[in-house]
Design a protein around this nucleic acid. Structure first.
Lengths: 103, 103
DNA sequence: TATATATGCAACATAATAGTTGCATATCGA
DNA sequence: TCGATATGCAACTATTATGTTGCATATATA
């Protein structure tokens, strides 16, 4: 999963709220998850598919229900990406500092 | 800045590449930044405006140039968001573990 | 076995996004 | 000063994303 895809999936209000709900209240069925949100079941289903494609959630069919659960490693790619960029940032600042001091 | 806005800004290939370039090579002018990317200057400018609105970069007019630099705290909101969600996740797992053990 | 519940898929309408072209403006340097 | 360079803004187009309605299917449960 690429960082772009992860960020894109999280960069939509309805989807991010779904992720927060799952984080707060744990796994639940598709129907219970979108209730209270101003969207139809089919609309919610599309968002869940996008989150599943991005490996943020897992959709588990269970009889007539579909259980939605957060993927344990949902944010790993994002965390790594950010850490890598911040490391480079720091290294450049360090190099700049050394350069200035040597003058 | 909200997490949604941050993730949305980062969830686009051209913008994410711009952020990576800034991280790798440091601050540079608008023109040097988009060169080599398959996009016009005006197209690039739109993306930079979005990144600036999201407080990921800072646009500094300097004579006829515009210096683009990464904001030092660009990812803070995102890191906090992820940390908060993962903490909740862990707490729920802990509670579940305790519940099961007591049975 | 009916009936209610939970879901999936496809088609469509609308809104948002990405990217372009065209034109205007400002600044640097010979 | 004059040409080259660097930029900004507005209008337009094409593509993508969001969200809906409608219909079909599967599974609980009374």
């Amino acid at each position: 999963m690429s960082p772009v895809e992860l960020f894109k999936a999280l960069g939509e209000p309805t989807r991010l709220e779904m992720v927060e709900r799952l984080s707060n209240y744990g796994s639940q069925t598709l129907t219970s998850l979108f209730k209270g949100m101003h969207i139809t079941r089919q609309g919610a289903r599309k968002h869940l598919q996008i989150l599943a494609d991005s490996k943020i959630i897992i959709l588990l069919p269970d009889g007539r229900n579909t259980i939605v659960q957060l993927d344990q490693h949902a944010f790993d790619v994002g965390k790594k990406f950010i850490a890598k960029l911040e490391l480079r940032w720091d290294k450049r600042l360090e190099a700049l500092k050394n350069f200035v001091e040597k003058k």
